[in-house]
Computed example of a mutant assay.
Amino acid sequence: MKPWTIGTIGLAGLAVFVGGAYTSPEVLLGVAILVALAVGIGWPHFLGIPAKKTLAAIIGLPGAGSAVAATYVPAPGFLDWTPAFIAAGVMAVFLMQLIRGTGQAQRLESTLGSSAGVLLSCLGAGWIAASRFNGVKEMLLVAGISAAFALLAGLIRWPDRIVAPLGIVLAGLTAPLAGLIFSNIAVIPAAVVGVVVGAVLVSLRRLVILRGDAINIPAAIGMGLAPVAAVGSLAYFIDKLLIY
């Protein structure tokens, strides 16, 4: 799989998240659960670590649980249960490594990488929180548009020293424009969203390049959707901090 294929998967996941936010809470919940499970399945393949099936459950199920909680907990604590699911997932990762015993291959890589996967999987609940927050979905649209431009920049087959700044700049410029056109969001909060989202996406693009082309389909799907899942939480917290 080439890096541009992973970027295309990310764009598709982004479109599904934004579309789900504008349909119904049940649809968005279904999208968040499917993405969490896809990240759970694909992340161990991307890392190339052992015990992929067990780790798929450990990474994916906390993300699904976090999405369910974000859908049904009373406002305003939409993500109050997310830290608990992250902690449970990380504890399960460490417990699994203890069960595997000493001397097993890639224990450190598996522990650290799987813990990061749990975090990314659970952050997908941020899309639901951002959708429920004040009943206003414009910040999600702004974050989605800026993320799309960052992902599109990542499809360009140029060196990272060019693509990374380009992706951040495009996301940072696109977000305020989207905010002015599609909502009443002020320029500065929208620009902050764009820059932060762009920085996260181009950083994870670097991981794909370092990993190389020798990745399978589950790995491509997991890596394409993982950063997109994080975008929702970024939009939610920036919305809450700078606008509310």
Rank of each mutant, 00 (worst) to 15 (best):
A38T: 03
E26Y: 13
G10A: 11
A214R: 12
F133L: 13
V136H: 11
G144M: 12
L61C: 07
A148K: 01
A220R: 02
V68F: 12
A125H: 03
L170T: 01
V187Y: 14
Y72D: 02
A56S: 15
I185T: 13
P189C: 12
P50Y: 04
L79P: 04
G30L: 14
L28K: 12
F94V: 14
A220Y: 02
L11E: 03
G224C: 03
P189N: 10
L28I: 14
R157D: 15
M223F: 11
E109P: 07
A214G: 11
W4M: 09
G13E: 00
V208G: 03
G48W: 02
L155P: 00
A191V: 10
A12H: 05
V208S: 05
A230P: 06
A143V: 12
A129L: 09
A116C: 12
A229L: 11
P76S: 09
S203C: 09
G30D: 07
G222Q: 01
W158M: 13
L28M: 14
A175H: 06
S121R: 02
A57C: 12
G126N: 06
V196W: 04
E138R: 02
I156W: 13
M1T: 10
A171P: 04
A199D: 07
A32W: 04
L173V: 13
P25N: 09
P3D: 06
A150M: 08
L28F: 14
G60K: 00
F85I: 07
D80Q: 08
T82V: 15
V90S: 08
A230G: 13
L29T: 12
L225I: 06
A87W: 08
